[in-house]
Amino acid sequence: MIVVYEQDLVEELASRPSMGEAVQAGVDLIDLWPLTDASRLRNDARYAETLQVRITRILARIMTGQDVTIPDAEYVYEGAEDIPGRPQDLVDALLAANDAYEGMVGGAAQGQSGKLVQAARTLQAGWSQEETKATCDLVDRFGREVTPEGETLESSSEQAEVGRRLATSMVALARLAKALHADADQAVKILPVLLYLNELNERMGIPRVFLTDDQIRQLLGEAVSKSVQDLADTLAPLVTAEWKKHLDEVVWDPEEAKRKAKEDDERKSREALQAKFAHVPEDPDKPPVEL
Results as ranks from 00 to 15, higher is better:
S39A: 14
R175N: 01
E130D: 08
D28K: 15
A125G: 02
E161Q: 12
M1C: 13
V250G: 04
A119D: 01
D72W: 02
L29I: 10
Y196L: 10
K286T: 03
A241F: 05
E151Y: 02
E78M: 09
L59G: 03
R16E: 12
T36S: 14
R175L: 05
D44S: 12
Q112G: 01
T69I: 09
A172C: 09
D99L: 10
L219R: 00
A232L: 06
D183G: 08
G85F: 13
Q118W: 10
A241T: 14
Q66G: 12
E161S: 05
E282M: 06
S155W: 08
I2N: 14
D214Y: 01
G107D: 04
V250N: 09
A14V: 14
A14E: 14
L35N: 08
G20F: 08
M104P: 00
V209F: 09
V10R: 13
A38W: 15
A100M: 09
D28S: 15
D213C: 00
M204P: 02
R270Q: 07
V193T: 12
K286C: 09
E74L: 02
R203M: 00
D248C: 05
A272E: 15
R165V: 04
R164G: 07
A134T: 02
V53M: 07
T147C: 13
M170Y: 01
A182K: 02
S269F: 06
P71C: 10
S18C: 11
F210K: 12
G103W: 02
K226H: 01
R61L: 00
E78Y: 09
D137Y: 00
V228C: 05
T50H: 12
Q52L: 12
A25K: 11
T147R: 08
W33Y: 15
G65A: 09
F210S: 03
T36W: 04
P84Y: 11
T132K: 08
P148W: 04
V239H: 09
V250P: 14
E149R: 05
S155G: 10
L247C: 10
L291Y: 13
